[in-house]
Design a protein around this nucleic acid. Structure first.
Lengths: 128, 128
DNA sequence: AGTAAATTACGCACCTTTTTGTAACCATGA
DNA sequence: TCATGGTTACAAAAAGGTGCGTAATTTACT
């Protein structure tokens, strides 16, 4: 997706959120601060290069904040900006819409949306 | 983007909505029934192959309805399903989030004068 | 009257462009 | 020597564009 074709903000958002990784990364970062290697562990199928690229893109879009600590080995932390946190419920709504529109065929994933925060709950369950 | 990597519904939605065309097509179809050639005129930079592919994808996702009328030349009409119409406000919200998050600091756009309406219009081409 | 061309919504094959993966390299403190 | 968080170069894969074919009827022209 090289260029914009319209002046529509929705096209601009999609330019950032399109693809497999952006939304997944946002969801992992929703749980709190993560490091580069954490994100790679969370999602082993993303390549080293892609992770760096996607993180940079999200950073440029103001969704992710990158904090670099000096020293060696270099330590870098990633988390959501306030804007990124405001984005999360919108993506939730999309997920809810999706399961609502075709949730009549399957649905056995019983990870209930409990209140107690366990770790790595990236699989959302939209039951409403 | 070939395969899913998680069982997250958001990843499934993004598989359908990712890319330049899906959201644009939905926006054009929001105005009412369109034919294949209408959509090509609305958006001259999409190739006929892509348009056919994207429409099929949206149809499979239950967002767009395809109605074929017999005869020659074959006539086919496209419009949004009810689910597709329910999706529109969610995309609007994303667009609003976008303009809200970066219409803030970067002082370059002089458009934001006038009343304090936070409501943002999606700029569409007036091609009718 | 007869023929040619245009129309609509694609499918298919071929080719180019864009994206993504792989592997290697960097810097340096423990 | 290994670990961290990258970057770069090259290769592979995927996405996308172009042009042709299709079908039956209408219109355009001779």
């Amino acid at each position: 997706m090289k260029d914009l074709v319209s002046r529509c903000p929705i096209e601009e958002v999609m330019q950032v959120l399109s693809g497999r990784w952006p939304t997944l990364l946002i969801y992992y970062l929703k749980d709190g601060i993560k490091r580069f290697s954490d994100l790679r562990r969370d999602n082993p199928t993303i390549s080293h290069k892609m992770l760096a690229l996607e993180l940079r893109k999200l950073e440029d879009a103001g969704i992710v904040r990158r904090t670099e600590f000096g020293g060696y080995p270099l330590r870098v932390e990633y988390d959501l900006t306030p804007a990124g946190e405001r984005l999360v419920p919108l993506m939730d709504a999309l997920g809810d819409w999706w399961v609502a529109t075709n949730g009549n065929d399957e649905g056995q994933d019983a990870v209930s949306s409990g209140a107690a925060g366990t770790q790595t709950a990236h699989i959302r369950q939209a039951a409403n």
